[in-house]
Write a protein that binds this DNA or RNA. Structure first.
Lengths: 153, 153
DNA sequence: CTTGAAAGCACTAAAAG
DNA sequence: CTTTTAGTGCTTTCAAG
């Protein structure tokens, strides 16, 4: 899965992560190349799956999504059918921004963005009514110190 | 901070979140409007800070960043000077993708992306040598079930 | 909101290193 | 094999109705 990238590729990726609206000419100038080679490298990296997609980043506060919870989940069930239902529920709920299966005594962690604590409770009640969960701890974020989509290159 | 958005604005945002590479004409067609009004709405939402920026989403696996940790931090220190140093350290480290200050007995949560467990240990040793930390629990992600930048609208 | 028009840009192909 | 040059048609941007 890992793709071979040279220094120029990495510079281009850094520019695209920082600002995907720049023109090819601008990127080419910054990385010390020119339009066509930069365009070819970007195309190759899209085909190779290094660049997944391009998206607009929105401000959650400006949209009224003022509450962010990290949810630690322990479960007693480990059957395939239960897991299938659980994953489906997570993927279908748009307020679940992240979901990971973990190693260790905590089985899952979720990141959930909602309007307020009440909206979180609605989400929580809906989730536990869909699938059996042994233990849930919700961690409420008081302050987003850092949140970036920029991967280190 | 919260901005008033109508249904058309929300449809446009949904399109931009799903794929920011679409042309204005395409977006306009999908939301049932035309080029200029869509362009004006997007400009207004950028000025209002609803749309923060546009970015390329990269595949961490393809870049060889195969390990993801959630780090739960408890601290005994709550002085301004300690906090300043701690936040600075987090903001400067590119492997820290997210950092939140929490309510409750856990003080901070981090999301950290690195090449492997060894790289995490290097990060961890560097962090605890920079700032005094009372207790750290690292949760290792075995599987990214879901990871989206798309906020619910 | 629509039309329309100017400027800029992405993308392609073909030439040159 | 990679870069430069050059051209076409689409897209953004903006002014006027």
């Amino acid at each position: 899965m890992a793709v071979r990238l040279d220094d120029m590729d990495r510079k281009i990726l850094a520019e695209l992560q920082a600002d995907a609206e720049q023109s090819l000419d601008e990127i080419a100038r910054k990385v010390g190349s020119s339009k066509t080679p930069v365009w070819n490298r970007i195309r190759r990296m899209k085909e190779a799956g290094v660049i997944t997609r391009q998206t607009a980043i929105l401000d959650p506060e400006a949209l009224g999504l003022e509450a962010c919870f990290f949810v630690l989940i322990r479960t007693s069930e480990h059957e395939a059918e239960w897991q299938r239902k659980f994953l489906k529920a997570l993927r279908e709920r748009p307020e679940v921004l992240e979901a990971h299966r973990l190693a260790g005594d905590i089985d899952y962690i979720l990141k959930v963005r909602v309007k307020n604590a009440r909206a979180y409770d609605t989400f929580y009640q809906a989730l536990i009514s869909e699938v059996r969960i042994y233990n849930v701890t919700a961690l409420l974020s008081m302050e987003e110190i850092k949140a970036t989509t920029m991967l280190p290159l």
